[in-house]
Design a protein around this nucleic acid. Structure first.
Length: 156
DNA sequence: GCCAACGTTGGC
DNA sequence: GCCAACGTTGGC
């Protein structure tokens, strides 16, 4: 499968792009996903070196704040086994883990492209992120949408 | 804090 | 398998 592009949401009060930049290798284990569709994207469709748009959600300035890439295959999310974690899942076992995730490495902090700016771009009207009622924390981005976003990034 | 929209759970 | 009730997401 050719390289794909993804948009991944993170809440900056949990893990901001600056938090990730401060981590070893600027890499974060994308734990805590508890939605099957988002999990399945990571388990079944993500490939090494896929491009990731790093998005801040549930915050005063929601939007794209950086670029990243997928740097691991999917593996079991340790937080599902930890009773003290808010992501603990009592139905998950080491033999049959429920939740998997990849590791993501920041490649570039970019300017902020706010939700409004994305919405105001007609060429992005089909973006899954912008679909009415979308709540998925991981959404695919088409090659055409990626091209438009790269263009936006090159503007001031 | 509100609330629309969606996903999950569990009784039947 | 249906679907009501409940929980979560996330922008505003």
């Amino acid at each position: 499968m050719p390289q794909q592009i993804w948009l991944m949401k993170s809440e900056p009060n949990e893990v901001s792009i600056d938090d990730v930049l401060a981590m070893p290798n600027q890499t974060v284990a994308w734990t805590g996903v508890r939605n099957y569709q988002a999990r399945n994207f990571m388990m079944r469709e993500m490939k090494l070196n896929d491009i990731v748009l790093f998005y801040h959600s549930s915050c005063p300035q929601p939007g794209i704040v950086g670029l990243a890439k997928v740097v691991s295959a999917a593996y079991p999310d340790e937080t599902q086994f930890d009773p003290t974690s808010k992501y603990f899942d009592i139905k998950a076992t080491a033999e049959k883990p429920r939740w998997f995730h990849v590791d993501v490495q920041i490649t570039q902090k970019t300017r902020w492209i706010g939700l409004n700016e994305l919405r105001n771009e007609p060429l992005l009207s089909g973006m899954r992120l912008l679909a009415k009622g979308n709540r998925l924390s991981i959404t695919p981005v088409s090659v055409d949408e990626w091209r438009v976003i790269k263009h936006l990034l090159n503007k001031s």
